[in-house]
Design a protein around this nucleic acid. Structure first.
Lengths: 165, 165
DNA sequence: CGCTTACTTCAGAAATTTGTGAAGTTAAGG
DNA sequence: CCTTAACTTCACAAATTTCTGAAGTAAGCG
């Protein structure tokens, strides 16, 4: 039962976690393959896997890995690194980075704000609808600022609890 | 150019806003019809529309309205009210309520946390992967608490800026 | 008590999204 | 250079999702 450090991990336990966690992400709106790839990275020992490892572990084609990784990189949830002197690429989930990404609904929020501002202008700031849109806009502006300070607090909290990553 | 209060609203301007805003919500993962219905409610003068009004304005079938509204109600983004003594139903976007809903990713976060806890256990809290999952879990627990206090701050901020609802 | 209006449910057509195999591209290694 | 390994892109098949018309249900009104 004990797990001496250095022991091979139980691939089945890993897979169970990956699939279960990915399912939750999918339900929250993430496409299936990116969710599974992300789960696999989270559950890996180093947080780094190659394309080949991902394909094998998840039983998906290189094309699927490529697509999933492109998606995740765009969302800033993983970074891609070239293994120097090789054309093998490594994908990594990097602590701080992906927390930021999660809150980097920021880009999304920014676009909502733009649409709302436009609405306020075109419907008239003094119309009832315009006022509602303006208040919604104010809410998002508020949230945007709050998230920033929240992340600062998290970093402090994290350091205290885990030491510097 | 001026918009004397009480003037009929420009349906085209409304539609432009609704479609543009809905498009942003769709990009963020909301299904199309719920997004459009929600936009229409936001852009209405009273924040209340009947099923018929929604269908006409968005050029969609009663079935589509029904489905969209069911979805939005489930997400707590709108409430449904029976117009007393009529079988007409009114759908409303109610300021506070839908801000809460937006942050009520809470249920979603809760499930992520469950999956992560399971992962920590089955991969071993002392394994490298287990530690990563534990830290991720800690992040979500932190965020969950923060959101609560954030909403309190918002209510204060809002009241100061807009007066009570 | 039955007619009519307002919504809901359901089955299926249409559109969209997903994942694959195959062909293409790039760069390391001989 | 030429070969080959490692990804990427593309076209298409398969699965899924979305929206509609039609039939169903419920409740006000005469």
């Amino acid at each position: 039962m004990a797990e001496p450090s250095g022991t091979a991990r139980d691939p089945e336990a890993v897979s169970r976690f990956v699939e279960h966690f990915a399912a939750q992400l999918v339900e929250a709106g993430l496409p299936r393959m990116p969710a599974r790839v992300f789960g696999a990275l989270l559950a890996s020992d180093t947080g780094i896997l190659t394309s080949a490892q991902l394909g094998e572990q998840l039983k998906i084609s290189p094309a699927a890995v490529s697509g999933a990784v492109r998606y995740l990189a765009q969302q800033r949830m993983v970074s891609r690194e070239r293994e120097p002197g090789s054309r093998r690429e490594r994908y990594r989930v990097h602590g701080d980075q992906w927390y930021e990404a999660l809150t980097n609904r920021e880009a999304v929020i920014r676009r909502w704000e733009d649409a709302l501002r436009e609405g306020v202008t075109s419907l008239g700031a003094e119309s009832p609808a315009g006022r509602r849109l303006a208040e919604t806009l104010a809410f998002f502006e508020f949230v945007e600022k709050e998230i920033e300070t929240m992340m600062e607090r998290w970093r402090a909290h994290r350091e205290e609890r885990f030491g510097r990553g």
